[in-house]
Design a protein around this nucleic acid. Structure first.
Lengths: 338, 338
DNA sequence: CTGAAAGCGCTTACAG
DNA sequence: CTGAAAGCGCTTACAG
């Protein structure tokens, strides 16, 4: 059996009670200054490490937060986690990671089996086709706060952190219009996701503002992968009335589309404008380089974690919704004259 | 205070002792079949969730494993974690994630402050310039098993999971030679890392086998980023005796190099061959597409986690070193006749 | 300012 | 096969 140094060892060594050691170790209680110093010294000398199972049991808090998201193998999510992690690390919290693979079933299974008694809060971005949120309600009923980011569950009284999907899309499409494109298609994400809907609205409103119209067949919903983008572009190019440009819901789709267009000898930029969303590093690698809306993924991660910690530490912290503005990054894929 | 259902609630409801409930909940002990079934039913009915702080305290195991690595914002590491996570999920283990940002200081700080009493094992990939491993020894002294992957600490009696860096490099360089390149440079990683050394050896031995020579100035060590690759290529191109091809330690460096070469109007493939290592998805996005050695990142993650679980479950499981073969993927960046 | 005692939820010899 | 009891390491009213 493993043996670790406990407060009992410190107490024995110093010939005082464990209660006093316990109090000295946290600085919230009245303890004689010298006693505290002796305890602290001894703790370092013995390399004492608190047993979080025990503190968790006794106090009902664990300094663990769960992060639950669809994937981690892409720029956006991995950067968000890095931001979350930065704040958690500074604040002495541990991150427990769960990946749903974008499957609603797996999401439900994970949430229902969460080691909820050793979790102080949850940070979550839901799966594309999640439509059942009762398991979140159950978690919240246990007084475990949740903060949603990016892919949020509406109708839940929790804090949310988002990028400005509507205005980002609006700006991206307007940029296309200003550069002379008139027949703008939109390859969108799954229409169940709120941010997909917001980007679609931004697209529609930008067209409307400039008295341009779209066609139903120019709006295609599918997944978020490069492969999806490829297929969407193929579909658009097969139309009798072809668009002259594409606003993609994210960069991976945009890149898939560009790859397809290039393979067909279509000159991206000149012949066919493309604008993405995210500012994935790949958008600089592809040629022509991709014009896109940059999302502050790292900041979103940091802010989400900060909010969650506030909820954890202040019982009645009022839920907030934070929206980060996007930023248009103009590159080569959207200029008729490269 | 939060209140959760406990085994006491089940016991009271059924009018039996908590000991019996406890035993019925795990199936290792002799319990009357009917009793067990009643308990299991009631547990479901009351939505009982075990308190892992309590089981951890009582048993000294927590079903938590820590994953500690330099970054998660790249293809390789995020895919490895996905593999780890897959196995952990199937086996009912939780992943506690720590990111060192490739900083040895942060790595030491993290490892020294690990909630070691609530961790069953560690999966780690060290920072580039780590050279102090005593904190790992300390962890191991507490009977917490460690499995290293990719960036391993030598001289430690633990299991290790790697790709075949030597042979991968050898094959990549030989491929360049077979395609007619003769003056092959190597843009390497930090020379402190074992896998960097192995890839360098593979490069050297392939040249040697084909009676080709290199020059000291053709071997340049730097970091692993795209930016590093760019700078390395710039340096190589400034040489009086320029190489005619580059074997890069990873794809990001290779891509940086290609981007630089393209910006100088150098025709990659024809004029200048480039081969990478990893098979990052970006290697298909860049044009010309990058020839590379594919690493089975997902498999490496799975295997690492499987090994760790064996160490956790079987006290005297003998440390193993697993090496996964790489696979040459030929694309456009290495063929003189595109 | 400090100590003794009860308790957090679970496990596990020890009896029977 | 089952129960009573002690214990895991820590916290926290309660006394003093």
């Amino acid at each position: 059996m493993k043996h670790f140094i406990t407060i009992k060892d410190i107490a024995k060594e110093l010939d005082i009670s464990v209660s006093t050691v316990s109090r000295a170790l946290r600085d919230t209680y009245d303890v004689n200054k010298e006693t505290r110093e002796k305890v602290l010294e001894m703790a370092i000398k013995l390399k004492y490490k608190p047993n979080f199972n025990a503190t968790g049991l006794a106090k009902g808090s664990s300094h663990n937060i769960a992060v639950i998201l669809p994937f981690i193998t892409n720029y956006y999510f991995s950067t968000v986690i890095t931001g979350i992690q930065e704040v958690a690390y500074q604040s002495g919290y541990n991150i427990v990671l769960y990946v749903t693979n974008d499957s609603p079933e797996r999401e439900i299974d994970i949430i229902s089996n969460l080691p909820i008694t050793s979790l102080d809060g949850l940070l979550v971005s839901i799966a594309s086709n999640s439509d059942y949120f009762d398991h979140f309600v159950e978690v919240m009923a246990n007084e475990i706060p949740i903060v949603f980011f990016d892919r949020v569950a509406n109708n839940l009284e929790t804090s949310k952190v988002l990028q400005d999907d509507y205005n980002g899309a609006f700006e991206g499409v307007e940029h296309l219009i200003e550069n002379g494109y008139k027949k703008i298609a939109h390859i969108a994400g799954p229409d169940t996701l709120t941010f997909t809907q917001n980007r679609l609205r931004g697209y529609l409103d930008a067209l409307h503002k400039h008295q341009l119209s779209t066609k139903e067949e120019w709006i295609v919903h599918s997944g978020f992968s490069q492969e999806d983008g490829k297929k969407d572009a193929e579909l658009l190019m097969s139309l009798a009335d072809r668009p002259d440009s594409i606003f993609a819901a994210n960069d991976r789709k945009a890149i898939g589309a560009i790859l397809y267009l290039k393979s067909k000898g279509i000159k991206v930029g000149e012949e066919m404008g493309v604008v993405g969303f995210t500012n994935d590093p790949s958008s600089e690698i592809i040629s022509p380089a991709l014009t896109t809306i940059a999302e502050p993924a790292f900041e979103i991660g940091k802010k989400s974690c900060e909010l969650l910690l506030k909820h954890i530490e202040r019982k009645n912290f009022h839920p907030q919704e934070i929206v980060f503005p996007g930023k248009l990054i103009v590159r080569e894929s959207s200029s008729k004259t490269i």
